[in-house]
Design a protein around this nucleic acid. Structure first.
Length: 461
RNA sequence: GGCGGCGUGGCCGAGUGGUUCAGGCAGGGGCCUGCAAAGCCUCGUACGGCGGUUCGAUUCCGCCCGCCGCCUCCA
């Protein structure tokens, strides 16, 4: 039984499902106004791992993750680049998916775009207005949070304490500083859609409540995002659902953020690292390993050093796959039933115990490396059957976490191949000076040279 | 002011009331190897400070110190 931390209750509780064979999960996606940074990569990886693990356990996952393609930030960016908002959105959505593909993040089942949901959002705002929980000001429609009985549930704050701490300049027109905008009337030159309140655009918080309920229906299982979305974004989404008397998410999951020198990484602080840059300068699996190495709710510090370590550790996984010649099929359809034949049952149980415990991926990763060690040891002792069982267990669990070992042999050009053969010949004839010279030459060509009883093997450095 | 999190060995990073260890990276020693590489073995005796509970605390409680986050931009 999978247990997960739930922000609403502040406890780790069993994941209870609406239907017993299917998990409905909504994860707040990016606003596409710039290239993704490491924080985006982390939330995407965190929920990708959750999804993969649930599928590994044999359940179907309906994973919805939106693209916010209309927002103040996009309008601002469009102004800076002197293009229209749609161009900004499509440009950065494209880079978003490129990064996701490199990270090995599975595509969500559905990817709703805010722009195609505007009409539905207007309908929802009209309902809120008719219920008298929303009111009109000169610049738009606002939700009156005092009409929502348990507002502050996710933030674990009551209305009074939230008010007292307001750090942002208070808009005196609003009934309460906490009231939030549902519909923004368009200023000249801004993109606009029709509504009974006048032409304008939806507020951010309305988007996700409409799209999640539309695609997943009332009482869906998991609503997720990074911790900085808890308040106000998720609080406000929930407020609208509560005001409409609709059953919203039953489990709230939030991941921790990426820090730089101990401080939160964010675009507004300007200390962010572009995700693409990272993916271009490291093994694309290194960041996943780094994310998996710590708990999803802990902050992670990403540095050149920790990334290089991860690069090295990934190679250990690859070497294991190569040594045992295991084709690591990375299909997300792999599940416990299917792999119980090819892995050690005790180890599988241990892996599930770790993962069921609020996704303790750090423990799971440790187990994987421990299994690699056991496999190598058994192999060194010629205990081939156990060795293979441990190795395939390790790779299956890695697979379940989305870490794919690379097993394809490197294609060797004919020149390098001739050097390799010459080296084998030289070693056979005990011409070690010549063999050493050939090794240096091969290394300069970018190969790692390994000798064994079976001859000389080359692999890319 | 309100609410929450964190402080572990050279570095990163889990975990736990007590003899048996997280794991990765780096380092020392060894096995293997013509020499390497890979692999294996082995070593380093860590848990912010001060009290308390306890037969025993890094793990529970209290206080203190330090760091970080949220309180209508944010993944």
């Amino acid at each position: 039984m999978l247990k997960l931390h739930d922000t609403a209750t502040g406890t780790i509780k069993p994941l209870t499902l609406r239907r017993n064979d299917e998990v409905s999960m909504y994860v707040c996606g990016p606003t596409v106004y710039g290239p993704p940074h490491l924080g985006h990569g982390r939330f995407a990886l965190s929920f990708d791992v959750l999804r993969r693990y649930i599928e590994f356990k044999g359940l179907r996952v309906i994973h919805v993750s939106n693209i916010t393609d209309i927002d103040d930030k996009i309008i601002e960016r469009a102004g800076v680049e002197n293009v229209d908002c749609a161009t900004i959105a499509s440009t950065y959505e494209k880079t978003w998916w490129e990064s996701m593909d490199k990270l090995g993040v599975l595509r969500p089942t559905y990817v709703p775009h805010a722009v195609s949901y505007v009409e539905a959002m207007v309908n929802l705002i009209v309902k809120l207005f008719d219920l008298d929980v929303a009111y009109e000001l000169s610049d738009g429609i606002y939700l009156d949070v005092s009409k929502v009985s348990d507002y502050g549930l996710l933030a674990h704050q009551d209305l009074a304490s939230l008010k007292s701490g307001a750090r942002v300049e208070i808009d005196e027109n609003k009934r309460s500083p906490l009231d939030f905008v549902l519909w923004k009337l368009a200023k000249p030159g801004e993109p606009r859609w029709p509504s009974p309140f006048g032409n304008g655009r939806p507020g951010w918080h309305t988007e996700c409540v409409v799209m999640s309920l539309d695609l997943l229906g009332d009482g869906f299982d998991i609503h997720g995002g990074a911790q900085d979305l808890i308040f106000p974004h998720h609080e406000n989404e929930r407020a609208q659902a509560v005001a409409l008397n609709r059953v919203f998410a039953s489990h709230w999951v939030h991941n921790g953020w990426v820090t730089v020198s101990g401080e939160k990484m964010s675009k507004s602080l300007g200390n962010y690292t572009n995700l693409e840059e990272l993916l271009n300068s490291h093994d694309s699996r290194a960041y996943r390993l780094l994310v998996l190495r710590s708990h999803y709710r802990s902050p992670i510090e990403v540095t050149k050093e920790t990334l290089s370590e991860a690069d090295t550790a990934i190679k250990r996984l690859d070497r294991c796959a190569n040594r045992f010649n295991l084709q690591n099929n990375c299909s997300p359809r792999l599940n416990t039933a299917m792999c119980s034949n090819s892995c050690d049952i005790t180890e599988l149980k241990k892996f599930e115990d770790a993962m069921d415990d609020d996704l303790d991926t750090a423990r799971a990763v440790a187990q994987i490396f421990d299994l690699i060690n056991k496999a190598n040891l058994a192999k060194d002792n010629s205990d081939d059957s156990n060795a293979e069982l441990f190795a395939s267990s390790a790779l299956l669990f890695a697979n379940a976490l989305g870490l794919e070992a690379k097993t394809e042999s490197d294609s060797i050009d004919s020149f390098s191949e001739s050097l390799r053969l010459q080296r084998e010949e030289a070693r056979k004839n005990k011409q070690f000076d010549e063999a050493d010279r050939l090794r240096v030459e091969l290394e300069e060509l970018g190969w790692t040279v390994e000798d064994s009883k079976d001859g000389t093997k080359l692999s890319k450095q």
